[in-house]
Design a binder for these strands. Structure first.
Lengths: 219, 219
DNA sequence: CAACTATTCAATTGTTTTATTGAATAGTTA
DNA sequence: TAACTATTCAATAAAACAATTGAATAGTTG
């Protein structure tokens, strides 16, 4: 019977190895970043404001739990999620987190005191409006991520290039900007900029992943 | 732009609060226990081999992350999972864990060097055999859990009572014992005991929760 | 009201984890 | 081959955590 205790201890220790990966804010951020596209260590470091060595250590932890893999490309080491299971799991984790932590919603509202008109916009509705030529969909993420995957018919204008390319936008049409999902604020900045230039702009909270799921459901 | 950093930091810190709950083997064990049925602090302590104060502290952590709730009943405080979302999430978590940690499989095999013949037994098949009177299904968990929920037509014989009730079992029929799922070893002990008494016994890896899911799918 | 129970709280200890620094490695380019 | 780059490794200091103990609380029973 104390055999059972011993087994359980070992077993739950193994499970906790994965749990531990989710216990650090920075590691969660890394996982979310990687669920967008594979990235180099330095890329992650820049994106998260951590030192390279620190990122490397976190990636090691994630690798030990088999949550991420890496492939060497020239001088760079590109990390990616080990498996689509991991990405699905992260989605589930976010769902749970959001549901449980009411505070998260409040925090979001406090920071994003912008317009929320598009937040509830469903993807089928977006599709309809795009098909009717009513809106222009803008992907404001870095170009690599756009190239990795994007919502069909979306135009890639990374946030840095947005200001200079303003004039090339068609006039008299609503613009919808999206980035990596509800917790990424690139599109918020984009909408802010567009509005300050008198363009009717909205933020789409959804991500490419959401779009994929939507498409898979439809077919 | 450093506003964005600040928001992310706060946000991911909130997410990590849930993650931290999953980073301790003992807390995972508690969550699994509670996904079976609500339990008192002392009940959990006995079941996990921890001190009461220690369990209480872990439960507080879980409660802070809104993963568990409690209700007072007389002198006792009964804890339960906050939500079916939490229980679903734990299932997902186990799926991921098992998939990623190949070692877990190995550990299981090493310890459970018993028969695995029933492990792959699908629930519809079990149902068919039971309907045909080919097997007797035994629920060897503590009686409270049986009373909380059990697989229909299963007979409750808690492991402690099994030896004395051996004679009351019908002869010449295969016995299938189940408990809380693949990581609970009560049924392993039961099968061991039954076999030592010359009874043809098998272990079912599935749990009541699995049965519920199976039934819901069917209807 | 007093004795008793289950649980929680608070303080302490030893252990783990995190971020940081600077050096080491491996792969690339001139 | 030498200089350079991206990444990892190793050592450290600071912070967070887990388990333990014993006391405090709240609710129940005689």
């Amino acid at each position: 019977m104390s055999d059972e205790r011993a087994l359980k201890d070992v077993l739950y220790q193994e499970f906790a190895r994965i749990g531990k990966c989710l216990s650090s804010p920075k590691r969660l951020e890394i996982l979310d970043l990687l669920s967008q596209s594979p990235k180099s260590v330095e890329g992650i470091a820049k994106n998260t404001g951590m030192t390279v060595a620190n990122v490397s250590q976190h990636l090691q932890t994630l690798h030990n739990a088999r949550l991420v893999n890496f492939k060497k490309q020239g001088n760079f080491v590109f990390y990616e999620l080990a498996d689509s299971t991991v990405s699905d799991f992260m989605t589930t984790f976010h769902n749970l987190s959001e549901k449980q932590l009411v505070q998260v919603q409040q925090i979001k509202k406090e920071f994003l005191n912008n317009n929320f008109e598009m937040d509830g916009l469903s993807l089928p509705e977006l599709k309809k409006r795009m098909d009717n030529g009513e809106v222009l969909l803008l992907d404001v993420r870095p170009r690599e991520e756009y190239e990795e995957a994007h919502i069909p018919d979306a135009v890639s204008i990374p946030i840095e290039e947005l200001e200079e390319k303003l004039s090339s936008l068609p006039a008299n049409i609503d613009v919808v900007a999206y980035c990596r999902g509800p917790y990424c604020l690139i599109s918020v900045d984009a909408v802010e900029l567009l509005k300050s230039k008198g363009i009717n702009a909205f933020r789409l909270e959804k991500s490419v992943k959401d779009w994929m799921q939507f498409i898979n459901q439809e077919s």
